[in-house]
């Protein structure tokens, strides 16, 4: 499933995984984490559930790297393993993909899994409260260093628009892998701000960056996020 560029021991690492949700907030957020921390690409993923893709480097700090449907990045000092999944998952193969993915994380003795996500903003009825919510499993609660000061949901309540995050957490729980899922209520549009907010919110409870307010670096792949400018001959 994963082809590594080098042998690496991932025991004790914190793993960040984006689940595909509304506005691709979690993927954009993951882009910001990789770009800001200048993480090193170490693996590419292949599975029938992933729509294959290839492109030039998505990040300015790794100009010679290339972009695949699924990539893994690490920071050895911080013991941080970040997956970027750029493809939507093909429905009929999703279960197999998620099961194999969790098996890999379990075998690698990952310390905890942080799942990023987003859900439909029209599902948010209490407009006064935080746009962020979280769900964690018992295994995570036992090892959590910081109390998470957000509304805690149960993983049984459906979260509409959060793709496969909920299922991924269930598989992690069944495999006794400590996991927490953060998601932001978002609406489709320019979701770059949602992405930055999600990364900074998660950083409050699971240390990712060196400070609480890092200067987030916008990656090269965010150029022309909404397509080309209109050509003049149109007018």
């Amino acid at each position: 499933m994963l082809i590594f560029k080098e042998d690496i021991v991932l025991s004790g690492y914190t793993c960040i995984v984006p689940s595909l949700g509304v506005g691709n907030v979690s993927q954009l957020s993951t882009d910001l984490i990789i770009s800001t921390l200048k993480l090193k690409q170490i693996a590419s993923g292949f599975h029938e559930a992933l729509i294959p893709m290839f492109g030039p480097s998505a990040f300015q700090h790794e100009p010679k790297a290339s972009t695949h449907a699924m990539n893994a990045y690490i920071d050895k000092e911080k013991k941080l393993l970040v997956f970027q999944i750029r493809s939507p998952l093909v429905g009929k193969h999703t279960k197999d993909f998620l099961t194999k993915f969790v098996d890999f994380l379990k075998k690698s003795q990952i310390a905890k899994v942080v799942i990023l996500g987003s859900c439909f903003s029209f599902e948010k009825h209490d407009m006064e409260s935080s746009p962020f919510e979280f769900v964690s499993n018992e295994q995570f609660d036992k090892i959590a260093e910081t109390k998470i000061d957000l509304v805690k949901n149960t993983n049984d309540e459906p979260v509409f628009g959060d793709g496969w995050g909920q299922r991924f957490l269930k598989i992690c729980t069944a495999s006794e892998l400590p996991a927490v899922r953060f998601y932001k209520y978002s609406a489709e549009g320019d979701n770059t701000l949602d992405a930055a907010m999600l990364a900074l919110e998660v950083n409050k409870f699971v240390p990712i960056f060196d400070s609480k307010g890092p200067n987030l670096v916008r990656p090269d792949s965010w150029k022309l996020l909404f397509g080309n400018d209109a050509i003049k001959s149109m007018y």
Binding site: I51, F54, G55, T67, A69
Partner: peptide, 14 residues
């Protein structure tokens, strides 16, 4: 960048 190749060709190169 930000162009990429999606589909079978993308998979073969990848």
């Amino acid at each position: 960048c930000p162009n990429f190749i999606v589909g079978l060709s993308g998979g073969v190169i990848s």
